[in-house]
Amino acid sequence: MGVAGSGKTTVANLLAERLGADMVDADDLHPAANVAKMASGTPLTDEDRWPWLEAVGRAVRERLAAGRSVVVACSALRRAYREAIAASAEAPVRFAHLDGSRELIAARMAARAGHFMPTGLLDSQFAVLEPLEADEPGFTVAIDGTPEQTADAIALRLRRNGAPPTGS
């Protein structure tokens, strides 16, 4: 989880590979109207997000029911969003918050091409962000290293805690 440009998709792909898990990019589950709204520079509202968050949790639930582990790249910026994903998943979920400075993330966003999320929405992402709290299932990982180092740090933490990789 984390703001746009924090490396969620890249790290989730690497992590899924390391753990032998499926990978789901929550961006792929957005309805076309949400993508168009964000691409136009308009932040999503909670009303836009709730059906999408339910779809994210459902994707986790379906893979777990099929006997697969799954890593999900999803912003999950607020605690209520994370709780909605877990409720829809109907299973324990662990979150890894990819944490970095606004400057680092803005530079990464400016360097990428072909993504619907404009850099202009980064401030709205940070405004909505509620970092993981101590009583939530998950942990924070710094993204100042390479994506490979970030994925390795998450995999190590998951293995050390004996937690199945059912979400990120």
Rank of each mutant, 00 (worst) to 15 (best):
A66T: 05
R108Q: 04
T140C: 14
R94C: 06
R112L: 00
G67N: 06
A39K: 12
I105F: 00
R68N: 14
Y81T: 01
A16M: 02
S124N: 12
V56W: 12
E130L: 08
G20T: 09
N34Q: 01
A134T: 14
L44V: 10
D25K: 08
L44N: 02
S88K: 02
D22L: 11
V35Q: 08
R159E: 15
R82T: 06
L44D: 01
V71G: 03
L53A: 08
P137K: 14
V11L: 04
R61V: 02
L44Q: 00
Y81V: 03
V3D: 05
A106E: 06
V56S: 04
V35E: 06
A12G: 13
W50H: 09
L14V: 02
T150K: 07
T45C: 12
V72I: 14
L98Y: 11
M1V: 05
A12Q: 09
A153I: 12
T146M: 07
E103K: 04
N13T: 12
R160G: 11
L132Q: 10
E148V: 15
L122F: 11
S168M: 15
A106Y: 07
R108N: 02
D28I: 06
L121C: 07
D123A: 14
L121G: 03
L158Y: 15
S69H: 15
D152K: 13
